[in-house]
Structures are given as structure tokens and as C-alpha cells.
Design a protein around this nucleic acid. Structure first.
Lengths: 182, 182
DNA sequence: ATTAAGATACCGTCCAGACGGTCTGATGTC
DNA sequence: GACATCAGACCGTCTGGACGGTATCTTAAT
């Protein structure tokens, strides 16, 4: 039987989903408490009950996104054989596998967060962590970094210009994976 | 002797520089008409005399940035010998040569613009143009795209985590240039 | 089982501040 | 005097968030 706590979690998720939807459909400029609340079908007071401030809402949004991406990486990492470039290949696949909607949302999210110094710090930390992992992956440092950069830009580009057609997409994926060998 | 028009141009430039400075020092959130005007040592009325709206100011900012980057590319393109990968090498050098301040400003600018659909369209157009040029550069399409992606991400990363140390920077530059051959 | 008491979830109104932009003038320059 | 260049008060709107209230559920004592 669903308890109150369960329903609270559900409401939180609904609000998070609404915020994501608002960003995707209307851009970060319309990410206001009123808009999010209305989209979620909940009052502003209700929203503020679950997220003490707009900042808290965005923080939760960021964490959700980062966790999802990390989860993708872990998943692909398990599937890759133990060899130099293993982590990078997992990173590449995670980048290419992510859903378009998530891509877009994540990017727009980063954009909207970029104005908040606290969030930038957080993203920096993640980046440094990825950087360290890439450098320990058994490939020359410059090569490893460039591969990671290219994957990141693929992600950004997908948001800006849409996912490329399938032949180009798989060609990019293949080329990136190829660069992790040698 | 400076004419009326010259002084107007000077004021415009001063306002643009002030806007750049505001973005760099305080982030896009503080890019308000009042702040820009105050930073430039000009009243809000004065600002709005030269830029009819905040949108117009940002438009001018974007154009200034894109023109500067394009200028860098052209410059390096002239210096590169005619051979496959010529344009990409110019693109890479332009990315790596840009001043840190410009990097940061350009990036933050794009961020702040990202909310405005009209600006996104503009940036998309530039991206597609670069994409076309990269694909006509005599290299395999996937390779060319990946190189451009990596250069873009270098630029973004420099903003996020600062310019890497000199050995890493030149290693990245070398590796990228190396990828334009073969 | 009932009920009192308290916690939790949610609602809707109100307010203060920030922001973009208008408007009226002042000042200098040709 | 006409025009370009600024100054700065002012206005309407939007937004984050505070606040007081209500309803629903949990807990525990009877």
C-alpha cells in the first residue's frame, strides 16, 4: 500500500519531470516556479514544500542528470573487456547512447546552471574526475583527452543541430572507438 | 579631429567592452542594462540610445565575437600550405590561439544567448557553415568532424577548467594537428 | 476501534525587489 | 535652432519566495 512518503517521492519526481519538460519545450528562460508548478499540475506552494527554493530544484535536476549519465558509463564499462581505452570506450558509448531528450535537457540544464557559481564548481568537479579517469586509461594523455573532448562536443552538437543521420552517427562512433586503439 | 560619428562608435565600443567585462566578471545573470551602463560609466538612457534594446546589445556582442573568431581562422588559413586538412588546421590554430578572455566571454555569451531562439538559429548557421568547410577539407568525413568537435570542446573546457598547462596544451595541439594528416 | 495530537503534503495570496524599457529634459555641437 | 548624445526619474511586469491556511495521513493512548 502506498504510504505518504511514497506519494511524496512521486510528487518530487513529477516536479522534476515538469521542470525538465519546461526547459525542453520553452527554454531555460521560462523555468520559473510558477511555470514548473503549473506544468506539474501542482501549486507553487506545493512545489516550494518539496524544493525549498528554485536553487534546490535546479540542484536536484543537476544531480538527476549526472547520476543518469554516470549510470550509463558504469553500465557500458562492465560490458567492455579489460584493455587500454576501456573507460574511454564506455564514455563514448554512454555519450552516443543517451536519449536525445536527455541530451538536450542535460545541455540546457548545464546552460541554465552556468550562471550559478556553485553549480559550475560542481560540474568542474565531475569534469576533473572524468579527466583523471581518461588519463588513467592506458592511452597517451593527449589522445585520451582529445577523444573525450570529441565525445563531449558530439553531445553538444547533437543538441545544437540535432542528432546526425544514422550513417554519420555510426561513422563518428566507429572513428572515435578506433582512436581508442593503437 | 574626431567627428560625431567617431565618438559614437567609440561609445558603442565602450559599451560592448563593458558588457563583455560584466559577463566575464559577474556572469550572465548580472548582464543587465543597469550594470552594463554603470560599468561603462554611462547612464542607462545613454546605453539605450546606442542599443535600442538589450537584445540589440547582445546581438552586437555575438557578431563581434563571431567576426573575431572568423578573422582568426582566415588569418591562419592563409599561413597554411594548400593540402588536405588545411582548413581544419587553421580552425584548430584559431581555437588554440584565442585569448583566454575571449574564450571565456565567447562561451558565456553563447550560454546567455542560448535562451533566445533567434540567437540559437544564428549560431546553428555558423556551425553548419563550419561543418561544410570541414567536410570539404580532403579528409574522411568522420575524421574531420571529430577533429572539429575536439577543438570545440577544447575551447569549452578552457572556459570550464581553465587553460591547461603549457605541456598539455601543446601536446593537445600537436595531437590534433597530427590527426589532420593521414 | 476510536480519537486526540501532531506531522506531512499541498494550496493560493501577497509582497518586495529586480529588470527592461519609456519619457522628459539637459547639454553640447554644427 | 536642429540634431545627436547623454542623464536619470519613472512605470509595468515578472519572479522568487514568505506566509497562513486546509486536508490527509501516522501514531499512540485509551
Amino acid at each position: 500500500m502506498p504510504t505518504k512518503l511514497d506519494s511524496a517521492q512521486q510528487t518530487r519526481a513529477k516536479l522534476l519531470a515538469a521542470a525538465t519538460e519546461v526547459i525542453r519545450a520553452q527554454g531555460t528562460q521560462h523555468l520559473t516556479l510558477d511555470t514548473v508548478a503549473k506544468t506539474a499540475g501542482i501549486s507553487k506552494g506545493g512545489l516550494l514544500h518539496h524544493f525549498a527554493s528554485k536553487n534546490a530544484l535546479m540542484q536536484a535536476l543537476l544531480e538527476q542528470f549526472l547520476n543518469r549519465f554516470q549510470h550509463f558509463i558504469d553500465q557500458y564499462y562492465q560490458q567492455e573487456p579489460l584493455a587500454p581505452g576501456r573507460w574511454l570506450r564506455a564514455y563514448i558509448r554512454a555519450t552516443f547512447a543517451d536519449e536525445p531528450a536527455d541530451l538536450e535537457t542535460g545541455w540546457l540544464l548545464l546552460i541554465s546552471l552556468a550562471e550559478e557559481p556553485a553549480f559550475i564548481t560542481q560540474v568542474q568537479a565531475i569534469y576533473r574526475q572524468f579527466d583523471a579517469l581518461a588519463l588513467q586509461d592506458g592511452l597517451p594523455a593527449a589522445r585520451a583527452t582529445i577523444i573525450r573532448f570529441a565525445a563531449d562536443a558530439y553531445w553538444i552538437n547533437s543538441w545544437l543541430n540535432g542528432i546526425p543521420n544514422e550513417t554519420m552517427r555510426s561513422a563518428l562512433l566507429d572513428e572515435l572507438l578506433r582512436l581508442t586503439h593503437l
